[in-house]
Simulated assay, not measured.
Amino acid sequence: MLRPAYPIETVRLTLRPFVAEDLDALHAYQKLPEVARYLYNDPRDLAASREALKRRMAVTALEKPGEVLVLAVVLRETGELVGEVNLGWHSAEHRQGEFGFVFNPAFHGNGYAGEAAVEMLRLGFEGLGLHRIVGRCDGRNTSSAKLMARLGLRREAHFVQNEIVKGQWTDEIVYAMLEEEWAGARP
């Protein structure tokens, strides 16, 4: 079980549970085609973003396998919501998890995704005691792949045309890190 002590502070960011007041900022990037391009969902209208926000607000801790914790990433200096990071708990027996990130393109190129993602890896390994954490991305999403490599995750698989997403075959790339790799070379 993982019950993080909020807020989680980094040098420039605050990670915290989503709140109702985040709706407009969340919708600002969820409605963008370039954000939805590599995700399973299409760009969201306001009603769909409201439902997505409710799901995010409902989980503030990981109580059991199958749950996914999604945290808001805000700039400490201004309080602006710049994106989100997530940690999913797949298996207690095998101590497996998965992490991910989605950011507003207006804030790309500042290192925020990497800074926030490190905290999710820390929560997974040090807080939840996971043995292995994976990150997956669409094969066309070179920015996410490069970020996972910079974080020290190992590229483990490239599945060619393994899913039909939004009507077209897509590749999937899988990265992973083990607990001892995290302990030996923290980003």
Rank of each mutant, 00 (worst) to 15 (best):
2 L>A: 07
5 A>D: 12
6 Y>Q: 09
6 Y>I: 08
8 I>D: 03
9 E>P: 00
9 E>V: 13
10 T>L: 02
13 L>V: 12
13 L>K: 11
13 L>F: 13
13 L>Q: 05
13 L>E: 06
14 T>W: 01
15 L>H: 06
15 L>S: 10
15 L>R: 09
16 R>T: 11
17 P>N: 10
19 V>F: 00
19 V>G: 01
19 V>P: 02
20 A>H: 11
20 A>I: 03
21 E>Q: 14
25 A>D: 11
25 A>R: 13
27 H>K: 12
27 H>R: 07
27 H>Y: 15
28 A>R: 14
34 E>D: 14
35 V>A: 10
37 R>A: 13
40 Y>L: 12
42 D>Q: 15
45 D>M: 12
45 D>Q: 03
46 L>P: 00
48 A>K: 14
48 A>F: 02
50 R>K: 14
51 E>R: 15
51 E>A: 15
51 E>I: 02
51 E>H: 10
52 A>W: 12
54 K>Q: 15
55 R>V: 01
55 R>K: 14
56 R>F: 14
58 A>L: 07
58 A>H: 05
58 A>E: 13
62 L>M: 09
62 L>R: 09
66 G>D: 06
67 E>P: 07
67 E>S: 05
70 V>L: 03
71 L>C: 12
71 L>I: 10
74 V>M: 01
75 L>R: 14
75 L>V: 15
78 T>P: 08
78 T>N: 12
80 E>V: 13
80 E>C: 02
81 L>F: 06
81 L>P: 04
81 L>G: 03
82 V>C: 07
86 N>E: 14
88 G>N: 07
89 W>L: 05
90 H>T: 07
90 H>E: 10
91 S>H: 13
93 E>N: 07
94 H>K: 02
97 G>K: 05
101 F>N: 11
102 V>T: 15
102 V>R: 08
103 F>G: 10
104 N>L: 07
105 P>G: 09
109 G>L: 13
109 G>M: 08
110 N>R: 15
110 N>E: 06
115 E>Q: 08
116 A>G: 10
118 V>G: 02
118 V>A: 13
118 V>K: 14
119 E>S: 07
121 L>S: 09
125 F>S: 08
125 F>I: 09
126 E>R: 10
127 G>P: 11
130 L>C: 05
131 H>C: 00
132 R>T: 05
134 V>W: 01
134 V>D: 04
134 V>C: 07
136 R>H: 04
136 R>V: 11
139 G>D: 00
141 N>G: 04
141 N>S: 12
142 T>G: 08
146 K>T: 00
146 K>H: 08
146 K>V: 03
147 L>W: 09
151 L>S: 02
151 L>V: 09
152 G>I: 03
152 G>L: 03
154 R>K: 15
155 R>G: 00
156 E>V: 00
156 E>R: 01
158 H>Q: 04
158 H>Y: 11
159 F>W: 07
160 V>F: 11
160 V>I: 15
160 V>M: 01
161 Q>R: 15
162 N>W: 01
162 N>C: 15
163 E>A: 15
167 G>R: 08
168 Q>M: 08
168 Q>G: 02
170 T>N: 01
171 D>Y: 03
172 E>D: 08
173 I>M: 09
175 Y>L: 01
175 Y>D: 00
179 E>N: 13
180 E>A: 04
180 E>M: 01
180 E>Y: 08
181 E>Y: 06
182 W>P: 03
182 W>A: 06
184 G>Y: 06
186 R>E: 08
